[in-house]
Simulated scan of single mutants.
Amino acid sequence: MTHSTPAGSRGEVVIRCEQVQRSYRMGDALVQAVRGIDLEIARGEFAAITGPSGCGKSTLLHLLGAIDAPSSGRVLVNGRDTAQLGDTEATDFRLRHIGFVFQRFYLMPTLSAQENVELPLAEAGMDRRARRARAAELLGYVGLGDRRDHRPTQLSGGEQQRVAIARALANRPALVLADEPTGELDAATGERLLEVFGPLPRDGTTLVFVTHDTVVANRAQRVIRLLDGRVSSDTRHGSA
C-alpha cells in the first residue's frame, strides 16, 4: 500500500518543541509534568519516548498531538503553533494531520471494523464510495481484509489494535502518535504489530511512540528518554 503523506521532503522538521512546559494543579499542589523541553523530530523518523511512570511521557504526547496546550513555550507541528488553534481548528488539524493509536483501542463497539476505519474519512468529508474503498485498502494493509465486517467484540486484541492502526492512517497523516500501542498485547502479537508500522517511515510518515516496551524502543530509529519532565537522553540507532 502506498501511504502518501503530505508534500515535504525527508529531513524536514515535523515536530518542534521550544522550551515547552506543562504544569497543572492537583489539589493544592502544582505538578510540573513537562519542564522546558526542546526537541525536533523530522519527517520519516521513528522515535520512541521512554522513561519511568510519571516522567511526563503521555503529557508530552498529548502536547505533540494538539490534545493539550503548553503552559509556556511552543509546540509546532508541520509549522503550526498548536496553542494558537481554536477548538474547531484544532479538531480539524488533528483529523487531517495526526493519527492516534491508543493502548485501549477506543473502537466503536456497535460498528464493524470497516465502519470504524471509515469514521475519520466521513468526518473529513470523503464521499461514501471513496471512503469504503480507502477503508478496505487499509484493512487489507493491516491483514484484516477478511475481517472487515466483524465488530470489535468478535476480534482478538491484536486484531482490534490493527483496526485502530488502520483508522489512524485513514486520512494519510504526516504524524502518527501511539501511546503504549503494544501494552495490551502478548509479545508475539506486539511483534506482528510492529511489522505493520515498519514501512511507514520509509514513505515519509513520522512515528512517535510512548512506550515501556524495550522491543518497541529497539525498533525505533531514535529513543528519547524522559526523567522528571525533562529529556535525559536522546539516542539515535540509525535507520529502522
Rank of each mutant, 00 (worst) to 15 (best):
G125M: 10
V223N: 05
A187T: 15
A29R: 15
G8V: 04
H62K: 13
L227S: 13
P120C: 09
G79W: 05
Q160A: 04
R132H: 15
P199E: 08
F102N: 04
M26R: 15
V75S: 01
R25Y: 14
T110V: 13
V196H: 00
N218H: 15
S23M: 12
R219S: 04
S4I: 11
G44R: 01
L169V: 03
L39S: 03
F197D: 00
V210L: 09
V13W: 03
A90Q: 10
V231P: 00
A133F: 05
R134S: 01
F102C: 05
G51D: 04
V142L: 04
D146M: 10
Q19G: 14
L226N: 03
G11T: 10
G157K: 07
A135I: 04
T189G: 09
D149H: 14
T2E: 12
G183T: 09
R202M: 11
T211L: 06
R132I: 04
D234T: 00
L107F: 09
E40G: 05
A166E: 02
V14F: 02
I98G: 00
I15F: 01
T88P: 08
D146A: 13
G79D: 09
T88K: 15
L119I: 13
G11A: 10
A133C: 10
V215M: 14
G204N: 06
A133L: 12
D92V: 14
L76E: 10
A47C: 15
D186I: 10
T235H: 12
L185H: 04
A124I: 07
A113F: 01
V231M: 02
G65M: 05
A135G: 06
V215L: 12
M1L: 13
L64G: 03
F209C: 07
I67E: 09
G51F: 02
G143N: 11
E118W: 03
A188Y: 11
G183P: 06
D127V: 13
L207T: 01
M26G: 12
L121F: 02
S4R: 14
D127A: 13
D38F: 09
T153M: 13
L119W: 02
R151V: 10
G73H: 07
V20A: 08
R192N: 12
A166N: 04
V216I: 13
V117M: 03
R129T: 15
E195G: 12
E184F: 02
R162A: 00
V142S: 01
T59Y: 08
V14E: 01
D228E: 15
V77E: 01
L39R: 03
S112Q: 02
T214S: 14
Q21E: 13
Q221N: 12
A29H: 14
N116H: 05
G65C: 09
L64T: 04
Q103V: 11
R162D: 00
V176P: 00
G65L: 05
Y106G: 05
R43V: 07
T82E: 04
P52S: 15
H62T: 11
L177C: 06
A170M: 06
H97G: 02
D146Q: 15
R148T: 11
